[in-house]
Amino acid sequence: MNAFIEKKATYKALVVGVSAGGLKALCSILPKLPVGFPVSVIVVQHRKHMAGDYLIEYLAKRCQLAVQLALPSQPITPGSIYIAPTGYHLLVERNATFSLSIDARVNYSIPAIDVLFESAAICYQHQLIGLILTGANHDGSLGLKTVKKYHGLTLVQSPDSAEYPEMPDAAIAATQVDHILPLSQIASFLTRLLMGDDHG
């Protein structure tokens, strides 16, 4: 069943959830995604709410794809990397635009990975890829389960390659994930999957 879906699906979006140790993990994946990468990349990185948010700037300098803050009502276009703002939950509406909320924290977090993943799963269903990376909590495990429920593809960074293995461990415990990948291989796996064997 999975092989069938993987082969047949034309994916539209990749949601990424990452917490402690995230900067290093993101920097070993996002800069390697090539121009022409055919899906939208949407990232929740847990971090504190404050005025200056340097993550966007930092990643933009290193990535081939455009990196931007995810803002309300913005259409989500392929080949762009969107980062959830601090202090808000980021959600994907059914019409593939972003919305924000300051609803209660989920897993002590705002933005919460579960909130992004669950809303994106409703929008994109089998056309979604969910990826859980390093982190020291359990956020994202229910979200990844929802991605699986609607026949999306589920990926987790292998706990032994994670700076903080707790979040990958929790995701693996909650869901029969499709692929567990070492950090160094995630970018090439994604480009091969989405762009064919010539890439990655």
Partner: peptide
Amino acid sequence: YARASLERK
């Protein structure tokens, strides 16, 4: 209302 957060609730 924006639907996604409402649907979640």
